[in-house]
Amino acid sequence: MKFMLTTSAVLAVFLFATQSHAADGQEVYSNNCAVCHDAMPPKMGDKQAWEPRLKQGQDALMAAVVNGKGTMPPKGGNSSLSEEDIKAALNYMLDQVK
């Protein structure tokens, strides 16, 4: 019985520790995207530059980030970013131009 309780407790701690938490879009942006998007087009918050991209839709924007486009490498150069991270950063960026 004691073994089962200990095993259950260890499993619960493991599951809690490995659960993915919602990505913080601003943090992902600051740590991965800001270097370029604060200096090069489309700049963060530049509604005019983002307008044609917004018309493409979020799926097309996600694909561009995941696969790379133009001078932007796939996943903005950080292959460890999850799609959840990318989506959170993209939503944060898009919120700045709405």
Rank of each mutant, 00 (worst) to 15 (best):
97 V>I: 07
25 G>L: 01
29 Y>H: 09
37 H>F: 08
95 D>G: 15
77 G>N: 04
69 K>D: 10
34 A>S: 11
53 R>E: 00
11 L>T: 14
98 K>D: 12
79 S>A: 13
71 T>H: 10
56 Q>E: 02
94 L>D: 08
66 V>R: 08
95 D>A: 11
62 M>P: 05
64 A>C: 07
98 K>A: 11
70 G>D: 07
70 G>Q: 02
20 S>D: 14
23 A>L: 06
71 T>Q: 12
24 D>E: 08
33 C>S: 05
65 V>W: 01
91 N>D: 15
37 H>G: 11
70 G>T: 06
3 F>A: 15
56 Q>Y: 00
6 T>M: 13
70 G>L: 05
87 K>D: 12
61 L>K: 01
34 A>T: 07
76 G>T: 01
96 Q>T: 14
91 N>T: 14
66 V>G: 09
54 L>A: 04
10 V>Y: 02
75 K>N: 07
57 G>H: 00
21 H>I: 14
52 P>A: 02
40 M>A: 14
89 A>M: 03
90 L>Q: 06
64 A>V: 00
46 D>L: 06
20 S>M: 12
93 M>Y: 03
56 Q>C: 00
54 L>V: 07
78 N>G: 08
69 K>F: 11
24 D>V: 08
71 T>K: 11
74 P>A: 01
67 N>F: 00
7 T>L: 15
56 Q>R: 00
2 K>M: 15
89 A>G: 05
5 L>A: 13
45 G>V: 10
69 K>W: 05
73 P>N: 03
75 K>R: 11
25 G>Y: 02
35 V>S: 14
29 Y>A: 10
98 K>N: 12
93 M>D: 09
5 L>W: 11
23 A>M: 05
47 K>D: 12
93 M>R: 05
29 Y>M: 06
78 N>Y: 08
24 D>G: 07
1 M>H: 12
8 S>E: 10
97 V>A: 09
71 T>N: 13
8 S>G: 15
86 I>Q: 00
34 A>F: 04
80 S>F: 10
82 S>F: 03
42 P>L: 02
59 D>H: 00
45 G>I: 04
51 E>V: 03
89 A>T: 01
5 L>D: 12
50 W>H: 08
54 L>F: 02
72 M>D: 03
42 P>G: 03
62 M>N: 04
48 Q>K: 12
73 P>E: 09
97 V>F: 03
69 K>I: 13
84 E>Y: 01
13 V>L: 11
8 S>T: 15
54 L>T: 03
5 L>T: 12
52 P>K: 01
97 V>N: 04
92 Y>M: 02
17 A>S: 14
66 V>K: 09
15 L>H: 08
9 A>G: 15
74 P>L: 02
5 L>N: 15
79 S>W: 01
11 L>G: 13
6 T>Y: 11
23 A>Q: 11
54 L>H: 02
65 V>F: 02
9 A>P: 11
88 A>C: 09
90 L>K: 07
48 Q>F: 08
35 V>K: 12
39 A>W: 09
98 K>V: 10
57 G>P: 04
22 A>V: 06
5 L>S: 13
21 H>C: 12
9 A>M: 13
2 K>I: 15
93 M>I: 13
20 S>I: 13
73 P>Q: 07
78 N>L: 06
58 Q>K: 14
36 C>V: 09
69 K>S: 15
3 F>Y: 11
40 M>D: 15
60 A>K: 03
71 T>I: 14
96 Q>Y: 04
22 A>N: 06
49 A>L: 09
85 D>A: 04
